[in-house]
């Protein structure tokens, strides 16, 4: 029963997201990896992973699990249900001092179980005017533990305008989700160089600002 409600709710979320944003995916030249991988995306709205989830082909969608903050999703019964049962999120504890479980261990075990991850390496929603916040080191620690996993950059465009921080009514606007070709960590690549390379790969997918002319 609970599973049925969860599946129904998931379908409803996807339908709602599509009705509001008419979301369109832009696929990479060489296609998406079929093996479990890590989709890493820019983060500016609570709806971000729903949109990535909605555009993934059903076979890949089934194995994709968003990585989200446990503090936020375990706050109430309903958000726990949505986070855990509807989206099957990997819930990690963000505050280092209060941690009972190692986030990297949770993520690697999800990958080992055949899941893909949807990860937001900025760590928090970007509410600034900058296009991207500096990445947290989590992505680096994850690939240090699993260096052969594919990393797929995903740029989510316009969703921050659909529902800016603090608003409750979404504005219908067309969103796009652009996927890049899969990347890996290189041998002997250090943390800063790796994170820098990932950030530029992600920014390369961002469209030019509107009205900037041709």
């Amino acid at each position: 029963m609970k599973i049925m409600i969860a599946e129904f709710a998931a379908a409803a979320f996807v339908l709602f997201a599509r009705a509001i944003t008419a979301v369109r995916a832009i696929w990479p030249e060489h296609g998406l990896p079929s093996r479990p991988c890590v989709y890493f995306a820019n983060h500016s709205s609570h709806g971000d992973f729903v949109l990535v989830w909605a555009v993934l082909p059903p076979r890949l969608r089934k194995q994709a699990r968003p990585v989200a903050g446990a503090e936020y999703w375990l706050k109430s019964k309903i958000s726990t249900f949505i986070g855990r049962d509807v989206f099957n999120a990997v819930l990690i504890e963000r505050e280092r001092e209060k941690r009972t479980q190692d986030p990297i261990a949770l993520m690697t075990s999800a990958i080992d179980d055949g899941s893909s991850l949807i990860l937001f390496p900025e760590g928090t929603r970007n509410l600034t005017d900058a296009r991207l916040l500096p990445f947290k080191s989590g992505l680096f620690h994850l690939v240090s533990a699993r260096p052969d996993v594919d990393l797929v950059p995903v740029w989510i465009n316009n969703l921050n305008r659909v529902m800016p921080k603090g608003e409750i009514v979404p504005i219908p606007l067309i969103c796009t989700v652009a996927f890049g070709d899969a990347l890996r960590i290189m041998a002997n690549e250090d943390k800063d160089a790796f994170l820098e390379r990932m950030q530029s790969a992600l920014l390369a997918l961002a469209p030019k600002p509107l009205g900037s002319g041709e």
Binding site: A22, I171, P172, L210, G211
Partner: peptide, 9 residues
């Protein structure tokens, strides 16, 4: 309207 508003300031 959704297409139009997407493109404006």
């Amino acid at each position: 309207l959704r297409e139009f508003i997407t493109l404006i300031n």
